[in-house]
């Protein structure tokens, strides 16, 4: 069985966006980049399937600049992926998910995979479209927001999170799954494994190598703007808790008019 894990390098969740006024671009100079936390569930699930036995090969696929190699090595290869593919065209940096899906689908079609795993969304642009777009482009089944997976012979059963509950979905292989927190607990790489990961193959390809034109983004960002500035916090005297609660309820009811 061949498993592809589509991953993205994103700014760390600690990242502060310093944006005093609307701007055409973000100043990304101080950003520390890490594996998208949701993709870590996809990587872990692939490795668990591999560890469960049988002939399983796991490939991490990403698009990005040379700096993604560090993330691929530490968070994918060192925890158990067998190899990695990087699509290097600079036009794909910051591209929309339709473009990324088209490029990644070209790798997946070239190599042939039975299962494609990715995170439910990337925590930078928060779109959460990649997995579903891939499935349609590859003509594969998909289940999104998966919190539990049982692989069968040529099929799978997955639990998918919905508002206020879950759906149990049966799908045929090959399939694309988007992975949600709860699916597993991603492991951390050990130091010796990080050293050894340097020996694993990391292929760099361009869209031209894959026989496609660099896909154009359909959605473009015109402007970034900071959230609305918030006013001063009104502190309520808390000497007497009962009185403080009464005053808070009054303010919410009469001043803010939210209850």
């Amino acid at each position: 069985m061949k498993i592809a894990v589509c991953v993205k390098q994103v700014p760390d969740s600690e990242t502060r966006i310093n944006l005093a006024a609307p701007a055409a671009q973000l100043d990304e100079s101080g950003f520390t980049r890490v594996l998208n936390p949701y993709d870590a569930y996809a990587v872990e699930e692939a490795i668990k399937i591999k560890e469960a036995g049988g002939e399983v090969e796991v490939t991490a696929i990403t698009a990005g600049p040379a700096a993604v190699k560090e993330t691929l090595k530490k968070d994918c290869l060192a925890v158990g992926c067998d190899k990695a593919v990087i699509i290097t065209d600079p036009e794909l940096i910051g591209a929309d998910e339709m473009a990324l899906a088209t490029a990644m689908a070209a790798v997946i079609k070239r190599d042939g995979y039975d299962l494609v795993l990715t995170g439910i969304k990337a925590i930078d642009n928060d779109s959460g479209q990649l997995g579903v777009l891939l499935a349609e482009q590859l003509d594969m089944a998909h289940v999104s927001t998966v919190t539990k997976l049982d692989l069968g012979d040529g099929n799978l059963t997955a639990e998918r999170e919905i508002e206020g509950g879950k759906e149990i979905v049966e799908a045929s292989l090959p399939a694309v799954l988007t992975c949600q927190k709860g699916l597993n607990e991603p492991r951390l790489p050990s130091l010796p494994n990080i050293m050894k990961a340097g020996m694993k193959p990391m292929e760099e390809v361009s869209c031209a190598d894959l026989g496609i034109e660099v896909p154009a983004s359909l959605v473009t960002v015109k402007l970034y703007s900071p959230p609305h500035a918030r006013g001063e916090c009104k502190l309520i005297d808390a000497e007497d808790p009962a009185a403080a609660a009464r005053e808070l309820a009054r303010l919410l009811n009469e001043e803010a008019k939210v209850i």
Partner: peptide
Amino acid sequence: FKVADYGVVADLFDIVPALTDEVGKIR
């Protein structure tokens, strides 16, 4: 508190039940 519009610096075990009562009264 930097993002809050209203703040109560106190033990939540005192404030939250009292607030529940007050909301009940308003409702």
